[in-house]
């Protein structure tokens, strides 16, 4: 049941990214182009997504997940170097091409060779992350 729900969740998420235009790099880069011909679509997508999600979070109090397990713990509200450096690197890559992980994967069937090359590079970047994280950790500990 958990696996079937995960499949359905992925499908709804993918369809949402698809119809909202988020797999179109022009719309994403258009949103980031605040001083040019700004495209607000991404703000509507974010706003629309946050509403059901906020309701879901409010329903997690004093309950358990329907299909078993535990709700995720609240992470310590630590704004560390990994969070800010990671977000900065991610944002730079997002701006360069206009793809983040969800749309990059959702558009695999129609993203062409460029989309595939992006995915291969993204996987390589993900593989390189654990050692990079350890390096940041050790430098923080030494400082």
């Amino acid at each position: 049941m958990r696996i079937i729900l995960a499949l359905i969740v992925g499908a709804i998420f993918g369809a949402g990214l698809h119809i909202s235009g988020m797999t179109d790099t022009n719309k994403v880069q258009g949103f980031l182009d605040f001083f040019g011909a700004w495209d607000p679509t991404l703000a509507f997508v974010m706003g629309g997504a946050i509403v059901p999600m906020a309701i879901a979070w409010s329903l997690t109090r004093k309950r358990q997940p329907v299909l078993g397990g535990e709700f995720p713990q609240r992470p310590d509200p630590v704004i560390d170097r990994k969070l800010s450096i990671g977000a900065m690197l991610f944002g730079a890559g997002w701006g360069l091409v206009g793809l983040c992980p969800g749309p990059a994967i959702a558009s695999i069937s129609y993203g062409g060779l460029g989309g595939l090359i992006f995915l291969v590079a993204m996987v390589a970047g993900m593989r390189a992350a654990p050692p990079a994280k350890r390096l940041l950790d050790s430098r923080t500990a030494a400082a």
Partner: peptide, 28 residues
């Protein structure tokens, strides 16, 4: 009409995340 599609797609994305959280207890 792009913003309507954006809003609709966004609601689907948030709905999917809500299902994953309430059903499987996982963050999408």
């Amino acid at each position: 009409m792009d913003w309507i599609w954006g809003l609709l797609g966004g609601l689907m994305i948030g709905g999917a995340g809500a299902l994953y959280l309430l059903g499987n207890g996982r963050i999408m």
